[in-house]
């Protein structure tokens, strides 16, 4: 099941692994710089200021990024995670990921105006569509039941408020 990386994909992954090292290094730099830019605190107590630990963590990230780059240079590769429903070997299906992100963001944008029962239903339907489900009517039914059902569960059963949006007065 684990596929031996072939020549070209190894090289390609090698390049993107340098990207990870770069990301870690940039993050480390950000931590150190932002810690050094912290203004003097007037209410600070104790000898260790707010900047000390960020500098240490930033330093750790910088060191790790160097070691990771060295590791990649010597041929080390991070192994993509396997799993129950995962078939590695083929490329990454960016289209599905992008569609999922769209469904996810539309929920974030619509939860205020529409309320959770509908925005959640849109989220579920959108994700099912993105993942390849083509039972449109059945999906809509399931999505609505989940949206409305979870709203009732949280609001009535668990005393946690969720936005009701345009369904106010109906639910």
């Amino acid at each position: 099941m684990s596929t031996a990386p072939t020549g070209s994909s190894t090289e390609e992954q090698g390049r993107s692994e340098y990207g990870v090292a770069l990301f870690l290094g940039a993050l480390g730099l950000l931590l150190v710089v932002s810690a050094l830019l912290l203004p003097e605190s007037r209410i600070a107590r104790g000898p260790v200021g707010p900047g000390a630990v960020p500098i240490v963590v930033g330093g750790l990230l910088l060191v790790v990024s160097v070691f990771l780059a060295l590791d990649v240079r010597r041929g080390g590769r991070g192994e993509p995670e396997g799993g129950e429903d995962i078939e590695l070997g083929g490329g990454t299906d960016w289209r599905t990921v992008a569609l999922l992100a769209v469904a996810f963001l539309s929920n974030a944008l619509l939860i205020g105006p529409l309320g959770w029962p509908l925005s959640g239903a849109i989220l579920f339907w959108g994700c099912a569509f993105a993942l390849g489900s083509r039972h449109y009517v059945r999906d809509v039914a399931i999505a609505l039941v989940l949206g409305v059902g979870s709203w009732y569960l949280f609001v009535l059963g668990l005393n946690i408020s969720l936005p009701v949006g345009i369904l106010e007065g109906i639910l």
């Binding site: 999922l100 974030a108 959640g120 994700c127 946690i160």
Partner: peptide, 20 residues
């Protein structure tokens, strides 16, 4: 359970939990 519903459900409940 169909995988389309499983992972759609995970994202649904993840959003619900994080928002709540």
């Amino acid at each position: 359970i169909p995988r389309t519903y499983l992972y759609a459900g995970i994202l649904f409940f993840a959003s619900l939990g994080a928002y709540a």
